[in-house]
Design a binder for these strands. Structure first.
Lengths: 222, 222, 222, 222
DNA sequence: TATGAATGAGCCTTCATTCAT
DNA sequence: AATGAATGAAGGCTCATTCAT
């Protein structure tokens, strides 16, 4: 069910040689297993053994395609990074009028979809980096660069605002909101209507850029 | 330097007996060491050995006060939780007018201060939970409950808006923004003026609630 | 460049069937690769993978010709053993006079040449045995038997001396000296003249057998 | 039975802290176990597990005193190196007369004793280095430096000979002879009289330096 | 014959937790 | 109350050897 992107690249060892059909299939199984296990258990708790079992292959085989757990999450993450980059580019001009808001709303729809698939990987990735170095970098950079890219678009529509700062804030909001949604926080004991949530986010975002925040209720807590 | 709150409670073993002066001092050293080490290395990378060394005490002693690593981070975290609760309560009514914005701004100042001290602990705590169970709960709950509490205040000022949803979104924004700030993402290569950042956050937040988002630039990228 | 002897035998599996031209070529590539890799990395550090890569063939193919890594080093070593046997036979009578010394000197020249080619293999072989059983045998036996054979020759020239004991001692000396030379110990920071070294060895050996050790300096340290 | 020198130093981790009586005892058990296991199986074949079992302690404890297998062999070897250095210093002047030969003979006695105890460690040590880098160094250096030191002594007695070259050759001879003796090669099926062997070595060595190699048989093969 | 792929036993190392003094 | 020492269950990774095409 959970699946890596079709053309996700393999890890370091896999890139050093030509893969045949069978090899490609195995690598794919491992990538998919990686998504599944990392999503379910997070980076740290995920054992190579879990991944290998999920992929119905052996321990040794894993290291034929990835040099270690990090290598796998990186392969997975770099794919997500690409998707995110594409997503940022796909945001059209955001104008102060209702068309601008609709543009934002449509974009959020796409973001939501991508995030639902990749959110867990981003989480695992961030954790991986946090565990290694003093503080996470790439995972943060991803959203950061994403925000910058987004900021440029916004700047075109609301030049007098500090686009960079606002964009970061808004991306933070959007990302976390989705994170909460995925981690079940919003769904515990309450029905959340995805469309309504996105409406609210679009409204809040648009309003924070151009004023006018009169929205209808979206989520009913408790 | 980094220090736990004065009246932070100890772990399970410590609560089962009466602590004398010396015992209290030792526990305090361990709590402080916990803040220091968890902040610097995160939960997973933090070794009991690191903590014990930072506290200039021994392994055996550690387990005299805390039943395990989790117990320590929980002691630390529950303290943070209390502070956060207090913080949420301290937000006065947020009105659509400029007074409301100033209220928000002042509150952000307090939040910022608390977060700077406790952010790393929240991060470590979240990680601890993510590593154990399937997905983090308490760390998220903390901010979630925090948002709810905040939402109620906001509701008083902007009843027609879905306060719960908006509050969560805004808390998400505020929290992440601070997280980025702490993790150095915002500071790499650019001077960030804390006051200006808070101005922007206050403006964006207020605007998203009541419209009117005409703010002056706060952060100058590059 | 480093190459196995022309008519080195293959491993067990290769001897069980008739090799065609192509097969012979492949086996040869593997033998040469073996010499190259074992020489460079020693037995233990040499991976089957290294050998296979050096021979530009595959893992599966390797086991078509040799039943395992040991089998390969043994094939290589038994070849060396033969050469050594021939070498021992080639030593003429060593008389107390100058002709005896010249005979020794000429023989050392041949030894030197063979050792330069095969020394690394002997080393790898010895290591292989040391790693397996409690203590090396064949590698030692080789030089031991070699010494015995040499001893007999010497005995003819100096019957009153304990030929066996002396021969072993002298072979030990000669072998180690060459080993040191190969392993670079003698060459670090000083130019070593091979001819001069052999002169010294011949002189010392001859003198230890028949007295008269007045030699001119051979190596100038520093 | 096989035992490390009384004041052998511990490994890296052990040197970073103060050891109490119990700790010292444990470290000693590990050092002794190291000698025993390395001697019996050689460096590569020796498992940390074997050592730990021989020392009747646990896996974790091992790493409390040595950072790894290498660390242990190094601790053991550096001790040997010291003994060897002392040995080299202990050689008095070697004169052409019979007193010189007796001096040599007495020294060989001491060498023999030390080698019997430490030979296996030197072997393991050399193997350790051969396995790691391209070619062994320290193990070789040890004997090399040893030879140099010895060479100086000899130089005093036979100035016209190339002392450095000759010393290396002689040390090579002496060392290997002992190595063969230990590895059982000389003892298989024949009674070797240690005293007689040392007599021969002394005679051969002395003769090679000053002529006069008229010795009585030392070893009777078969 | 040849080969890419798969396997899994085996080994090293870490570290939270318990023990004995 | 304090502490140094000990423990052992995990877990990551390697690599000789076998398999399937």
């Amino acid at each position: 069910m959970a699946q890596a992107n079709e053309d996700t690249q393999g890890g370091t060892p896999a890139r050093d040689r030509e893969l045949r059909a069978r090899g490609k299939r195995t690598m794919r199984k491992l990538l998919d297993a990686g998504v599944e296990v990392f999503s379910k258990k997070g980076f740290h708790a995920a054992r190579v053994d879990d991944i290998v079992k999920a992929a119905r292959t052996s321990h040794g085989t894993f290291y034929l395609y990835f040099s270690n757990k990090d290598d796998l999450i990186e392969a997975l993450a770099s794919d997500v990074a690409e998707q995110m980059a594409g997503l940022a580019d796909s945001l059209g001009e955001v104008t102060p009028d209702d068309a601008g808001r609709r543009e934002l709303r449509a974009w959020l729809d796409r973001f939501s979809e991508v995030y639902e698939r990749s959110g867990p990987i981003i989480g695992a990735w961030t954790a991986a980096e946090t565990e290694k170095s003093d503080l996470g970098r790439i995972g943060t950079d991803l959203l950061g660069g994403f925000a910058v890219s987004l900021g440029r678009r916004i700047a075109a529509g609301a030049p007098e605002l500090d686009a960079a700062a606002a964009a970061i804030a808004l991306v933070a909001m959007i990302e976390r909101y989705h994170y909460y949604a995925i981690s079940g926080m919003l769904g515990a004991g309450q029905k959340v209507d995805r469309g309504a949530v996105l409406d609210t986010l679009a409204a809040v975002t648009h309003a924070s850029l151009f004023g006018e925040a009169r929205t209808r209720p979206a989520v009913h807590a408790r």
